[in-house]
């Protein structure tokens, strides 16, 4: 915890430096090869070898995605692409195409500086999915609850508010929970690493206070209108009665429509 605080205190500077160093590092690894280099590389691998490499990258990303942790381009290069580096662009193009055409998933770069990727579902989640087939993950129930609170409170909340809310649901962040274990760690560490949440120190607070927002993955994966409809059912109100949230949900909906 103390480390996190220290980090976030000088966060901006350090993060900038780090991501710069990282991206420099990776740029080196991915220096644009010249056309003739690419040509030569293509000739030195058989089509079957290249097919196999594409399959390996797809499997690697699928396995990594099971943990929902963003995938670093450098890791793909280091662990899978290796000596095929000169044609990595061709390989990644085919990987992206495969995810799109076969799996209905989209490989999204969420951070162009450090080249982080996540897999986002292109098929809309449907409430009427055969229930027995959806693996029940209780953590997602908790996550959805927290995302709802943040959304309904205008997009950003102090962490104390979330802890208070969870306590009312008998999930006390101060105690070990039977299912969630260390709730505070799950929320501020696991969900943050998975990019569902952002957990940031509020500047100039003493003692330090933190706030929670939606992470990039939540933005890409969670349908705000569906969320609003569920909250509406809970409160027995029309979704449109929350004007600001409704406007945001409508805007988000049309945006994702155009992306699909």
């Amino acid at each position: 915890m103390s480390q996190r605080k220290r980090l976030s205190a000088s966060q901006n500077k350090a993060a900038n430096q780090r991501s710069k160093a990282e991206s420099d590092d990776e740029e080196d690894a991915f220096t644009q090869p010249s056309l003739s280099q690419v040509q030569r590389a293509k000739e030195s691998f058989t089509p079957i070898q290249i097919d196999r490499k594409v399959a390996e990258v797809v499997q690697f990303i699928l396995i990594k995605d099971q943990r929902k942790v963003p995938i670093r381009r450098a890791d793909i290069a280091k662990h899978v692409i290796k000596e095929y580096r000169a044609i990595h662009q061709d390989i990644m193009k085919r990987v992206i195409h495969t995810f799109d055409q076969v799996f209905g998933l989209k490989l999204v770069e969420i951070d162009p500086k450090s080249h982080l990727y996540i897999l986002v579902n292109k098929l809309e989640a449907l409430p009427e999915e055969p229930v027995s087939l959806i693996p029940a993950n209780p953590k997602h129930g908790l996550l959805f609850t927290i995302l709802s609170v943040i959304f309904m409170k205008g997009g950003v909340v102090k962490e104390a508010l979330v802890w208070g809310f969870l306590k009312k649901l008998r999930v006390d962040p101060g105690e070990r929970h039977d299912i969630f274990g260390d709730v505070k760690k799950l929320v501020t560490d696991e969900f943050v690493r998975q990019k569902y949440l952002e957990y940031v120190r509020i500047p100039h607070t003493e003692p330090m206070e933190f706030e929670l927002r939606w992470g990039v993955r939540a933005d890409k994966e969670i349908n705000k209108m569906k969320l609003l409809e569920i909250v509406g059912k809970l409160f027995d109100q029309e979704p449109s009665s929350w004007t600001q949230q409704y406007r945001e949900a409508t805007a988000a909906g049309s945006q994702s429509q155009s992306q699909r």
């Binding site: 055409q101 799996f103 209905g104 998933l105 098929l123 999915e129 087939l133």
Partner: peptide, 25 residues
């Protein structure tokens, strides 16, 4: 493949295994 195939595949992927009657449904 169409979206019907993709959704079927995704559901099998997240379940690992499904039985015959589930597959039919």
């Amino acid at each position: 493949m169409g979206d019907s195939h993709r959704r079927f595949l995704q559901t099998i992927m997240s379940n690992g295994i499904i039985d015959g009657s589930q597959a039919k449904a």
